[in-house]
Every structure is written in structure tokens, then in C-alpha cells.
């Protein structure tokens, strides 16, 4: 077989060789609906957690679509949606100097302090 067909297509093998195009064609992209990121609170007492994204015409439609897409089995009690374009992120990767200031402050962790084993309730 000339190209690679791998089982990693989930519901069945799909071609993954270089002949399969990957890049969006600008002329074809229908920039109609904005991308929203979706956050779900699983149950009372938990934080909202990012679960994925979807496209919607407006905020209200984004909430409705998020309910259908991400909470079909009681996975949530509350949903936040926010336009992806409105999110400001810290940095392009996860080894950024932005987080360096906390790296050398080991004294912020309880394990920094040595307490004898026999001190009760510590």
C-alpha cells in the first residue's frame, strides 16, 4: 500500500500519509460563527473546568449548544462560555519565565519545614 493507513482513526483505519491535505484554504474558510471555549462545573463545590470548544452565532446559542454537546449525561450543573478571541493567555509554552518567580520559593510549601515525627497533629 503506497500510503500509511493506521488504525488510529478511532472508528476505523484512515489514511495518514502525506497526500492527505491539512492546511485550511483561506478562500474556503467560512468565517461566520466565532469560536467559544466551554467551561463546566461538574457539581456543586467544584470549579468550572475547561472541556472544549464550539462555534456559535452568539453567546446564548453557545450556552445551548454547550449543554447539548458537553452535558448529555449530567456532567454539569453550570456552564460558562467565552469567545476564544477574548482570552488572554500567559505565554506560548509551559517553560516560560513568567512562572520562574515561584520556582525558587520552596519555603512556600509545608514540606520545606522539618518537624520531629512525635509532634502531634502536625
Amino acid at each position: 500500500m503506497s500510503t500509511d493507513v493506521t488504525a488510529e482513526g478511532g472508528h476505523g483505519a484512515v489514511p495518514t500519509g502525506p497526500e492527505v491535505p491539512t492546511e485550511p484554504r483561506p478562500a474556503r474558510v467560512r468565517r461566520d460563527w466565532p469560536l467559544y471555549e466551554v467551561f463546566v462545573r461538574g457539581k456543586r463545590g467544584l470549579n468550572h473546568v475547561h472541556v472544549g470548544s464550539l462555534h456559535a452565532a452568539d453567546d446564548e446559542m453557545a450556552v445551548d449548544a454547550a449543554r447539548d454537546l458537553y452535558t448529555r449525561r449530567n456532567e454539569g450543573v453550570s456552564i460558562w462560555v467565552v469567545k476564544a478571541a477574548d482570552i488572554t493567555a500567559s505565554s506560548p509554552d509551559e517553560k516560560d519565565p513568567l512562572f520562574a518567580p515561584s520556582g525558587d520559593k520552596v519555603y512556600r510549601h509545608p514540606t520545606f519545614y522539618e518537624i520531629p515525627e512525635d509532634v502531634p497533629h502536625m
Partner: peptide
């Protein structure tokens, strides 16, 4: 949604499916 995090575009992907530039599992 996962493909879009890599720079793909959802509407464009659907077009590529319909134009048979991308495939789907033969089982269907």
C-alpha cells in the same frame, strides 16, 4: 474542536470531506 487547536478550520475540514480530499473509515 481538538483539530482546531492545531490550526485546522472546522468548515474547511467539512469541505475537504465533501470534496473527498480527506477520508473517513471504510466501515461506513
Amino acid at each position: 474542536s481538538a483539530a482546531e487547536t492545531l490550526g485546522a478550520d472546522r468548515a474547511d475540514l467539512t469541505d475537504k470531506l465533501i470534496e473527498r480530499m480527506q477520508k473517513y473509515s471504510s466501515i461506513f
